[in-house]
Each structure stands twice: as structure tokens, then as C-alpha cells.
């Protein structure tokens, strides 16, 4: 469902962020992307969600050549992909319910459908009773749950999480991991998770892609990460 063929990315300033990357991910997989800072993890994500175009090669997602997508077609394509960030990116002046509903409102869904789905995802992420709370009243782990709920509200085929546990302590990180596994299982969502957290990667073993200086240096189907250093 997702394939990169000989993909290279050179930014306008001359930085070579990715070199000749080849990979294939099937529907329903859960994949880690790991590597040191500056190794090209975020670039890979931006190529997948259509924010950046590859300099060389083909990025194919759900049969769509993402790099060749016309500007006007990018928004529609984006609906296939949910994104979660390290810093949550919630709207402080909206409640939990409103934050999640917002993602559906801007796609002009009927409010009846929105209410139903928001309750469903709030239940899925375990925040049934927090609908009227504001983000500032929640812990970091709970805020990330809201962000995840928002990212899956529109039922994307792929969920991309860029260091979702980067700001959380190990206990909370573990909970977020289990939540993502549950979403992967229950909603059938393909999940790509960028992370620095080797403890997490070794504990919840999954297919792991390793990037270093823009090269895909390892693709370990059985998971687990061992530093070369």
C-alpha cells in the first residue's frame, strides 16, 4: 500500500536528506522509523504526507504517486493520512471534544456524524469523561491521547506519529504505545512511528527501519535495535 522506489531528497539549500531509499509497507503494518537527529526521519514523513516532493524516485501511497500530485489534489490525499506530533498541537481554547470535532468540522461532516465518531474515538483512547476539559487541565499523556484521537477521527488509512512519546515519561510512553497498538488492531490503521526511544523499540518489538545520514541502513522485520556505536 506504500512504496518508495529509489527515493532521494535534496533540499534547496543543498542538504541531502535522503539517499536512494527503497521500501515497501503493507496495509495494517506497524513500523518504527529510528535514527539519530538529522538522519532524515521527518523528511521521509514529509514525502509521505505530500508536504515535500522527492528529488528523485517515486513515492507511491495507496496507488497515488504523491510526488506528482497536483497542489489542488494534496488536501484530498491528506485525508488518507493522520499525523501526530511530539508537541501535541492542540487548540488551547477548545475543549477535548471540540479539538477532536474540529478535524471533522473542517471537512464539513454533518454534526450528527461528528458527535458519534468523536465519542467513539474518545472511548478508544480512554478519555470518555474528559470531553469538556481543556488541554491545559490534562497531563501530557492525556493530551497526546487527544491528539491521537483527532488524528484518527477521519479514519485515515495511515497514521504517522513523529516522536509521539518524545515529551512523555517512560510509563506514559508505554501507555501511548499500547494505545497505538490497539488502534492498529481495532481500526486496521497502518502505523508509522518515528522514535528515539530505544527502550520502547526493544520492548514492543516491531518491524524497524533504521536511517543514518539519509541512508536506509537496516530494515529489521523482527524488530529490536542495537546501536553500532
Amino acid at each position: 500500500m506504500l512504496e518508495l522506489k529509489n527515493v532521494s531528497k535534496t533540499y534547496k539549500n543543498g542538504v541531502n536528506a535522503l539517499h536512494d531509499v527503497n521500501l515497501r509497507i503493507e496495509q495494517g503494518e506497524f513500523v518504527y522509523i529510528i535514527g539519530p537527529t538529522g538522519s532524515g526521519k521527518s523528511t521521509l514523513i514529509k514525502l509521505l504526507d505530500g508536504e515535500e516532493v522527492p528529488t528523485k524516485g517515486v513515492v507511491d501511497v495507496l496507488g497515488i504517486n504523491v510526488g506528482k500530485l497536483r497542489h489542488s489534489k494534496v488536501p484530498k490525499y491528506r485525508r488518507n493520512i493522520g499525523v501526530v506530533f511530539q508537541d501535541f498541537r492542540l487548540l488551547e481554547r477548545k475543549t477535548v471534544f471540540e479539538n477532536i470535532a474540529f478535524a471533522m468540522e473542517v471537512l464539513n461532516e454533518p454534526s450528527r456524524v461528528i458527535r458519534k465518531r468523536v465519542r467513539q474515538v474518545m472511548n478508544l483512547v480512554g478519555l470518555d469523561d474528559k470531553g469538556n476539559a481543556f488541554p491545559a487541565e490534562l497531563s501530557g499523556g492525556q493530551q497526546q491521547r487527544v491528539a491521537i484521537a483527532r488524528a484518527i477521527a477521519n479514519k485515515p488509512k495511515i497514521l504517522i506519529a513523529d516522536e509521539p512519546t518524545g515529551n512523555l515519561d517512560p510509563g506514559k510512553s508505554d501507555e501511548i504505545m499500547m494505545l497505538l497498538e490497539k488502534i492498529n488492531r481495532e481500526e486496521g490503521t497502518t502505523i508509522l512511528m518515528v522514535t528515539h526511544d530505544t527502550v520502547l523499540v526493544n520492548k514492543h518489538r516491531k518491524r524497524t527501519l533504521v536511517l543514518e545520514a539519509g541512508y536506509l541502513v537496516a530494515d529489521m522485520v523482527e524488530g529490536g535495535y542495537f546501536s553500532h556505536e
Binding site: 504526507d49 489542488s72 488536501p75 484530498k76 490525499y77 491528506r78 485525508r79 488518507n80 493520512i81 493522520g82 499525523v83 498541537r89 487548540l91 474540529f102 478535524a103 473542517v106 471537512l107 464539513n108 483527532r150 488524528a151 477521527a153 477521519n154
Partner: peptide
């Protein structure tokens, strides 16, 4: 701009934004 970034991230069309 945060709202706009979210709208974009979830695939709101330019007209909708």
C-alpha cells in the same frame, strides 16, 4: 496559524481554509 496547520494536516481544502 496553529489552527490552519491542523486544518491542513487533516486535509481541509484551500477553499475550506
Amino acid at each position: 496559524n496553529k489552527e490552519i496547520a491542523i486544518m491542513r494536516a487533516v486535509g481541509a481544502s484551500n477553499a475550506d481554509i
